Simulated assay, not measured.
Amino acid sequence: MTDPVQLLQQVAAQLQREGKTPSLALFRARLAGRIVPQQLFAAYQQWRNNPVFDDTTPGSETVPAPATVEHADTALAQTLARIEAKLDLLLSKLDK
């Protein structure tokens, strides 16, 4: 593979499968010596503007684990509760 953006897409997919968020530092660590720094940075900027996760491994559809889904649901519920509390406070101040 010679296209740096495609290489970044593959590494990004691999990082996501590992539960990591792709970043320039992780790309640098994974691609050390395979892409010159200038090409890596340019490819990263291009990938960041259009983050496609190229999953070339057949049958590697990732299904979120139930615990992950429950954690996300709990986090969303907590965030919603905080927003609703702030909204209630704002509305009560507007009524005064």
Rank of each mutant, 00 (worst) to 15 (best):
L8P: 13
I83N: 07
V63W: 06
N49G: 02
L7K: 07
S60F: 02
P22I: 04
P22N: 05
G19E: 01
D73F: 02
L24K: 03
Q10E: 14
K93D: 13
P4F: 01
I35N: 00
A43K: 00
A29Q: 14
L15N: 03
K86H: 01
S92I: 04
V36T: 05
I35D: 00
E84P: 03
F27C: 11
L24S: 08
F27K: 06
G59D: 09
Q78F: 03
P4M: 05
V11A: 15
A75W: 05
R34P: 07
A43I: 03
F27Y: 07
A85W: 06
L7P: 02
T21F: 07
S92R: 11
V36A: 14
L87T: 14
D54N: 08
R48N: 04
E61M: 09
Y44H: 05
D54F: 12
T68Y: 01
T21P: 03
Q78K: 06
L31K: 10
P58K: 02
A75F: 04
P4H: 05
V36K: 13
D54C: 08
E61P: 02
L40N: 01
V36H: 08
L31M: 11
T68I: 05
A12Q: 11
A85L: 14
D73I: 02
Q14N: 06
T57N: 04
Q39V: 01
L7Q: 12
V5R: 12
Q78E: 12
A42G: 02
T57Y: 00
V36N: 11
P37R: 08
Q78T: 09
P4I: 06
